[in-house]
Amino acid sequence: MEEIISKISRLMEKDDSTILEEHGIRGVNLSRDNFKKIKESEGKKVAFVDGGNAELLKAVNFSLSLVRIYANIFQKNKKIDEKKKEFYVLVHSDTEDGKLKYKTEIFPVKGDIMGRRFDFYADDPTLKDGVNKADISRIGGVVRRFAEIEIAGEISGNADIVVLDGSLRCCVKGEKKIMDQLYENAMHENTVVAALNKTSSIYTDKGNDLLNSVNIISPEGAWLYHPVAEIDDENYRAEISIVKLNSGSEYLFNLEVFKSQKDMVPIVAGELGDNSKDVGFPGYPYGLLMADRFAKISEEEKEYFITKFQAKAGGLWKEIKNRLNVKNSHDILNSLN
């Protein structure tokens, strides 16, 4: 045990100086000069968007998920508007030109539904798990992400800033087209597009996580660390900064702003800081906390929708159930523990 502790201690002694370069990302040297005080709020209208999804049914050739997207708008820490969409995503497999393909159909539960349908190839490298074809269960989460971006575009005209939970990086085929539409809408409406991420995919030249490395050299209080890196990637049109949004918080976040609006980084940080005073999670915007809470689909809700579907299916349910992967080997093993 002492040897392990000694090894960890030596690893912690590594000094970082620069950010590790990767495709499209050129790091800026780490420096205490890059820390800035968080600006005071200017009373901007800030929209927060998040989503949740739960797979209700899964068979070899189809998957049914429930997706919920929630958005709210805050001004001076008061909620002034909100919007929610809820829909089913039915994914079924097919073949095209000898390739396995997943086709989606969307059915509304609450609110208007997405205006698009999506098809995905199972061997799409942006969806695959290593060398394995993409699992049909993953598609519900992808559609949820697309819907989050789409609803952000729909409300962009009602807010000065729109904040997504996560990143502005487009990782899945088809995502960039929807994100670019959001950028276009936002620029037309003079709305800033941003995202707040709890983690960072950027590392230093010593292999350390960027958030941790910045934290080690950080001053007291709330702050904005910028610039971080220069990005030249059409799938990642963002200006990155690191923020500590409340002096009483221990948490840092990766703040991303649409690259064409990078001059707005200090203003976005100021508005988020003003919204990050909730005692339950100081340093994290209350608007995102609320969005997460109202978008999340609990296990109880999931069971309710499954039961509702079962009742609606009537006599057909027995045939459907026979096709479902109700219990795979992992489920059985988990039930024995």
Results as ranks from 00 to 15, higher is better:
308 K>H: 09
333 L>T: 05
295 A>C: 08
320 I>K: 04
310 Q>E: 10
309 F>M: 05
308 K>C: 05
286 Y>N: 11
326 V>A: 09
309 F>Y: 08
317 W>V: 07
312 K>W: 06
322 N>D: 14
314 G>I: 05
305 F>D: 02
319 E>D: 15
327 K>W: 14
307 T>E: 13
323 R>E: 10
322 N>V: 00
285 P>A: 03
320 I>V: 15
315 G>S: 14
311 A>R: 09
287 G>H: 00
330 H>L: 15
297 I>C: 03
282 P>A: 09
293 R>I: 14
325 N>L: 13
311 A>E: 14
299 E>Y: 12
317 W>Y: 15
300 E>R: 14
313 A>R: 00
313 A>M: 05
326 V>P: 09
313 A>C: 00
316 L>E: 12
315 G>V: 04
285 P>Q: 00
285 P>V: 00
282 P>Q: 08
299 E>A: 12
313 A>T: 01
287 G>R: 01
329 S>Y: 04
326 V>K: 08
290 M>Q: 08
331 D>E: 07
329 S>L: 09
329 S>I: 07
294 F>T: 06
327 K>N: 11
317 W>R: 09
323 R>P: 00
292 D>M: 13
301 E>S: 10
304 Y>H: 14
314 G>C: 11
332 I>R: 01
279 V>W: 12
304 Y>V: 13
298 S>R: 05
334 N>D: 15
282 P>E: 05
315 G>Q: 07
317 W>I: 00
297 I>V: 06
318 K>D: 01
293 R>L: 14
313 A>N: 03
323 R>C: 11
327 K>R: 11
295 A>P: 07
279 V>N: 10
329 S>C: 08
322 N>Y: 01
290 M>V: 15
280 G>Y: 09
279 V>M: 11
323 R>Y: 10
322 N>F: 04
330 H>G: 09
286 Y>H: 08
317 W>F: 15
299 E>K: 07
321 K>L: 13
310 Q>Y: 00
328 N>M: 02
323 R>H: 10
333 L>N: 06
323 R>A: 08
327 K>C: 10
323 R>M: 12
296 K>Q: 14
326 V>D: 03
291 A>R: 01
311 A>I: 03
316 L>Y: 09
319 E>R: 13
325 N>F: 11
285 P>E: 06
318 K>R: 11
309 F>V: 01
295 A>E: 06
312 K>L: 13
317 W>N: 05
313 A>Y: 01
300 E>M: 11
303 E>A: 12
328 N>Q: 02
292 D>F: 02
325 N>R: 07
306 I>N: 02
279 V>G: 04
295 A>G: 05
296 K>G: 06
285 P>M: 07
329 S>M: 10
280 G>R: 10
293 R>S: 15
301 E>A: 10
298 S>Y: 06
334 N>Q: 09
313 A>I: 03
